[in-house]
Design a protein around this nucleic acid. Structure first.
Length: 276
DNA sequence: AAATATTCCAACCGCACGATT
DNA sequence: AAATCGTGCGGTTGGAATATT
């Protein structure tokens, strides 16, 4: 007997989340926490599967998320961590409070990879591209890189590497220009990530992300369940921190102008009212 | 201004894994 | 030991936004 699907797909809504759905999910979790993701949509009144709710919470609704773009320092730290962990995005994301694995993965795929390539660095191996090509030439002088040479870990660059020798794109030519001067490449690389102090950067990032007043006592990212989070975010004296949270997620709540006009202490009433 | 190409990211999918029965 | 369940992870995709022709 095979594994059952995570939910009954019939009648399940997919695609982008609406403000109303966000509101329902957020409200439900803040009031009830999460015992079981599969039950969340049912009790929250959502036509979504639990998996989708979990993803929406983790990647978008979690109050501790940082919403500003990744800084250059963060980018550099990602590069360093990727050199150690490969595509283990959740592991990498664990070094960035308030950042999600999805966010980091997307940023890597859309920006950092390009940045490295333009510098003549192979994003997979973190070695200069020219050196990599020379190694391959020595091993197999008459063959280009084939899929059998690549680990499963390498598949994402499959398309760009298979036909690279026969047909050079403009980007390839630019890369060639850059990699002609090895000293520049090596200096650039060490300048922007080789000498970084991971601990220092990590601490800096933590300091920046903990803008919530109660952050010292609430570690959102390490909370194993939303219950744990939920129970810690709603103590009586925590009302002020929730107010701050509203300000920090201003963009998210721009649909409800009343939020920004709330006084300290009124935020709680807002949530309760909405629940009914 | 319109058509086309490219970029970006939210969301989905399938699989792996640990816990439970 | 095997089946089942719930969750988390990494890869991939769809489509909106933006840039280019």
């Amino acid at each position: 007997m095979g594994r059952q699907p995570c939910c009954d797909k019939v009648g399940i809504k997919r695609g982008p989340w609406t403000i109303d759905e966000d509101h329902k999910l957020l409200n439900f979790i803040l009031n009830n926490g999460i015992q079981c993701w599969r039950m969340v949509p049912k009790f929250a009144g959502l036509l979504r599967c639990g998996k989708s709710c979990r993803l929406r919470w983790i990647n978008y609704l979690r109050p501790d998320l940082k919403r500003e773009p990744l800084s250059e320092a963060e980018e550099n730290q990602i590069i360093q961590l990727h050199a150690s962990f490969g595509n283990r995005w959740s592991k990498i994301a664990s070094h960035f409070p308030g950042r999600t694995d999805n966010e980091i993965k997307n940023h890597w795929n859309t920006r950092i990879k390009k940045r490295l390539k333009l510098m003549g660095i192979d994003p997979l191996t973190h070695n200069p591209i020219e050196a990599l090509n020379l190694e391959n030439l020595e091993q197999k002088p008459d063959e280009t890189i084939t899929q059998s040479n690549m680990s499963t870990h390498d598949h994402e660059t499959e398309n760009s590497s298979t036909s690279s020798d026969t047909k050079k794109t403009e980007t390839d030519i630019k890369i060639d220009d850059i990699t002609n001067d090895f000293s520049i490449v090596e200096n650039d690389y060490s300048n922007f990530c080789g000498n970084l102090d991971v601990d220092l950067l990590s601490n800096t990032t933590k300091t920046m992300s903990y803008s919530l007043e109660t952050a010292e006592s609430i570690n959102f990212s390490s909370a194993s369940t939303a219950t744990e989070y939920s129970s810690s975010v709603v103590p009586a004296e925590g009302q002020h921190s929730i107010q701050q949270w509203f300000y920090s997620v201003d963009s998210l709540f721009s649909w409800d102008n009343n939020v920004n006009q709330l006084g300290v202490g009124e935020d709680f009433i807002f949530w309760r009212n909405y629940n009914h």
